[in-house]
């Protein structure tokens, strides 16, 4: 090796022009978005006094109506339970039909696009639509979570199916089994722990979502939250927020324990 080569190798290669251009574009993007999002940090300083007053309105939290809040929180959890269970039931066939190693392309692709659509639209949007369709109340929330979660779980379920070991399935096939029997005996036992784990994750996140879909009238604690915020009852708002945080943490811990059981 010649000495000139050595000298060149002592330093890292020069950053290419394309890379520099990418950094430039990233900076420009940030500046442009700053403008569009009307970011004005000076307000945080100028109105600091107002904000302190506002914040002090939250404390001490007012738990006078706690029975009502807890009751609505339970409804929220119930919305999440049914929204998730219905989604799991629907995601099993859709997840299988979206898997490369199960369904032919002419089934797989339409199913995948349908699931993409369900996933792309937020629960809140579905909630607003279902409030119009089935009226105000928790059922609209259940349907909203059901539809969106089906899209999410079907994708996760199908990815789990695509990662299975094909050999046990072939072992079942060699006994003269029907394709449905191959799935029930060869595929599902392999993916079940992962499916349960995904379903529990979605249940946790659905408890969070369920407390928000209430804001558009789809039942539960969200409805309460929306009304007291609009009425400037900040001490009550604080109490409700504490109850939501406590419930969500509790469910996170419980479902983490449950998940361990299955793996």
């Amino acid at each position: 090796m010649t000495t000139t080569d050595d000298a060149r190798l002592l330093h890292p290669p020069r950053t290419s022009l394309t890379k520099l251009a990418v950094y430039g574009i990233a900076l420009a993007l940030l500046a442009w978005s700053w403008h569009g999002a009307e970011i004005r940090p000076e307000i945080l300083v100028k109105d600091a006094g107002n904000m302190a007053t506002f914040l002090s309105d939250f404390f001490p939290p007012n738990f006078r109506d706690w029975r009502f809040y807890v009751q609505e929180m339970l409804i929220t959890v119930q919305i999440a339970i049914w929204g998730t269970v219905l989604a799991v039931v629907a995601a099993v066939p859709f997840g299988l039909l979206a898997a490369e190693n199960i369904a032919p392309v002419w089934v797989r692709q339409p199913v995948r696009r349908l699931m993409d659509a369900l996933r792309a639209i937020n629960e809140m949007v579905f909630a607003m639509l279902f409030v119009v369709a089935v009226g105000l109340g928790p059922f609209a929330g259940v349907l909203a979570l059901f539809v969106h979660t089906t899209g999410v779980l079907a994708k996760l379920f199908s990815e789990a199916v695509e990662a299975i070991d094909p050999r046990p399935v072939e072992g079942i096939r060699a006994t003269g089994a029907n394709p449905l029997e191959e799935i029930v005996y060869g595929v599902i036992p392999q993916v079940l722990p992962l499916w349960i784990s995904y379903a529990l994750y979605r249940f946790e996140s659905n408890v969070r979502s369920a407390s928000v879909v209430g804001m558009v009238g789809a039942g539960g604690i969200g409805v309460v939250l929306w009304e007291i915020i609009r009425g400037f009852y900040f001490a009550e708002t604080c109490a409700v927020m504490i109850i939501i945080v406590a419930t969500v943490s509790l469910i996170d811990v419980a479902s983490a324990q449950l998940r361990k059981l299955f793996i």
Binding site: R167, P168, G171, A174, G176, A177, N178, Y185, G186
Partner: peptide
């Protein structure tokens, strides 16, 4: 296929199922 038994190098059993269930799959035909 239901009249022909196949034994594989890697056994091709379903690992998470009990032996009994694996053996019962022989009667699926």
């Amino acid at each position: 296929r239901s009249r022909v038994g196949f034994v594989f190098q890697q056994f091709n059993l379903v690992g998470r199922l009990p032996v009994m269930t694996n053996v019962l799959t022989g009667s699926l035909g």
